[in-house]
Nucleic acid binder design. Structure first.
Lengths: 338, 338
DNA sequence: ATGAAAGCGCTAACAA
DNA sequence: TTGTTAGCGCTTTCAT
């Protein structure tokens, strides 16, 4: 297809160095004669030249590309994160490769090996369990940045969100909303996979905050699920409705897909979502606007995460190895709350 | 980092061919002695071996990787498409590289050149204008499959959705819903960038279907926007509210982000979304469940698209060049319609 | 049953 | 001011 430097050189009867120098715009610097420069420029303008990045990579032992592994792109938060990180990388002249592992550790490990074999310079990863980070770090010679889930490694750079604080704030907000209306509050908290540190943190902090305001513990019911998906939300809510006579005054979910599923089940079994039922979920989405209910959501700061993650990666690539831990603040968003 | 075949060979005092044969599991076939086979296997089990894909690619003139360029990943339809296509590629042993171009032709062209330089084997692309396909096809030696937008090229394989049919169906459904209730229907259609063939097709087919049922043309108001985004939806709706005294009985948008924006503006300027206002949008999303209104959405069949696109790519890679045009059916989804 | 060597296209060090 | 060459790690052909 495209001509190689060698081909151009031989066709013009000059050396590869000369062609290279012109192509790199260093003709002046190395005092290539105006005439040869012109000839080469004319040639490439006519025939085009596309550098062969594969050959370059092999020679330089560097591919100028990074990879990101997220659970799913159909989760809006991760899609937004991926989109922003890709832009950040592109602006720095790096290619970002994006892949989904569906929170399957085997798939994730396979992806990591694959990226390693393709000589990716560095890896951003949302680990699907605690065995992943050390393996990935070794394969990538420490050029790895962890995202979103803190399995307790201090040796690797990591960017997480402040689930603890925001969850406590959320609990207090919901509790006082009920109190202000003279309602005896009862909560249903549906949590996705509690083995994920982010989910566990959301759940335990929520419990702790309610304990602080002396909520009777039987006024908080908890359902956990193996995943943060739509069907798990449906299932959890259906189970609750089967085994309880009264609806909770407030519903809280640890992710949007769970929230969607829970409301879907509620509507199916119960005809509708009661207008005054207090709703809350982690993560935010424009479409939450569609609900008439009082509603609290917690927005993650993906921009902060992307910037911090990329900065850490730059450090690692530059050879600096001082892993830092970044905690992104979260924002409580209220809708129809008074 | 990882050992090379050469290193392994020299450390064990055998030739690269021998090592390779064992690594490829062809030891038997080429009658490598059990003993050498064992030694090599032991060695690689202990030290690990990761093939250098860059070197392999350079030698084979093939990277076993494909690329997909979509407008945005934060658009759920494209995120789902990307996710599914990635799985399809992975299952076939290919790596899929996913990138967003924000419907900016310059960005898209840059991405295409970048992928070309990285020797990607083939390209899936949602073209952002009519100048892209021929350029991309040339750079990728015809190994290109177009998605979602039909700019009228017959020479390239393309997978689109049946906007025409579904839009007509949608128009008839909305019209008869109003008729059944004895309402004199008035429509507001907000269309994103009508230079995109998919959008244009949705709009013109909708108009045509209403003309067929003899709707007075002043009962259909049309607003077009430069993009399919949230803010464009807001802007279009705000403008409508400023210049009209009455709300339309039905609102139709050509994409979900427009829909979100339009409802947001409606709520801001008008306090709420009237309960009986008939809503409709192209593309579907679980969260549309949240709305109490009668609502029609049109779901695209991303699975069909992915399968057709991948099959076409396989053909191209196999050297067959018989570009086909695939049209995916769409499904009308009704909520609260009676 | 195993080895040697060329070459993919590029970069960088050295030569002239 | 320009040219020559080694080598990145792999695959493949041809020799033993």
């Amino acid at each position: 297809m495209g001509k190689t430097i060698e081909e151009i050189a031989s066709e013009l009867g000059v050396s590869v160095t000369t062609v290279r120098l012109v192509l790199l715009g260093k003709a002046r610097q190395y005092r290539i004669s105006k005439q040869t420069e012109e000839r080469i420029k004319n040639y490439t303008e006519e025939h085009g030249y596309q550098i062969n990045h594969t050959a370059r990579s092999l020679r330089l032992q560097r591919t100028d590309s990074l990879a990101l592994i997220v659970p799913r792109l159909s989760n809006h938060f991760f899609a937004a994160l991926a989109e922003q990180l890709e832009i950040r990388c592109r602006d720095a002249g790096l290619q970002l490769f994006i892949s989904c592992c569906y929170d399957n550790p085997a798939t994730q490990l396979q992806l990591i090996q694959n990226f390693r074999q393709r000589n990716i310079d560095g890896l951003f990863v949302v680990p699907s369990n605690q065995s992943i980070p050390p393996k990935a770090a070794q394969l990538f010679n420490q050029r790895m940045v962890l995202l979103d889930r803190d399995f307790g490694f201090a040796d690797y750079p990591i960017i997480i969100t402040d689930n603890q604080n925001s969850s406590q704030q959320l609990a207090r907000t919901l509790h006082s909303h009920a109190a202000n209306r003279g309602i005896d509050p009862s909560f249903l908290f549906i949590a996705g996979n509690p083995e994920m540190p982010s989910i566990a943190s959301r759940l335990t902090s929520f419990q702790a905050a309610l304990a602080e305001v002396k909520l009777a513990s039987n006024n908080l019911q908890i359902r956990t699920a193996p995943r943060n998906g739509f069907s798990e939300g449906m299932e959890a809510m259906s189970e609750f409705l089967r085994t309880n006579n009264h609806l909770p005054s407030a519903l809280v979910t640890s992710s949007i897909p769970l929230f969607e599923g829970a409301l879907h089940a509620l509507r199916e079994h119960h005809g509708l979502v009661p207008k005054d039922m207090l709703l809350a979920t982690f993560d935010d989405h424009t479409m939450l606007d569609f609900l008439p209910n009082p509603l609290c959501s917690v927005r993650q700061d993906s921009t902060y995460m992307v910037n911090a993650a990329f900065a850490e990666m730059e450090q690692l690539i530059a050879g600096v190895n001082q892993p830092e831990r970044h905690i992104a603040a979260m924002t409580l968003i209220s809708r129809n709350m008074d």
